[in-house]
Amino acid sequence: MSIEVSIPTPLRNLTNNQDTVQVSGNNISEVIEQLDVQYPGIKERLADEQGNLRRFVNIYVNGEDVRFMQDKATAVKDGDEVSIVPAVAGG
């Protein structure tokens, strides 16, 4: 099972400057856990002590914001694209 995760610039120092990485998992929580196994330290940047997404972290699955789906429990499957994006502000 392979999911492509886009890594934003502020986190690339943890992923050896890779802007996309491959991980496995059945939902966003598992994807984050797996990311942390491969790139230690990344989980605490994305989630608080309870495992909830930090308030300025956006995660999209195939372009859809997980906060409007099942948040960290949002399911993912093989071939899905997950994007981690800092909160965007308007023009």
Partner: peptide, 10 residues
């Protein structure tokens, strides 16, 4: 740069 590397705060 526009966000914090640790918590993505502005």
């Amino acid at each position: 740069v526009h966000v914090c590397e640790y918590d993505f705060g502005p």
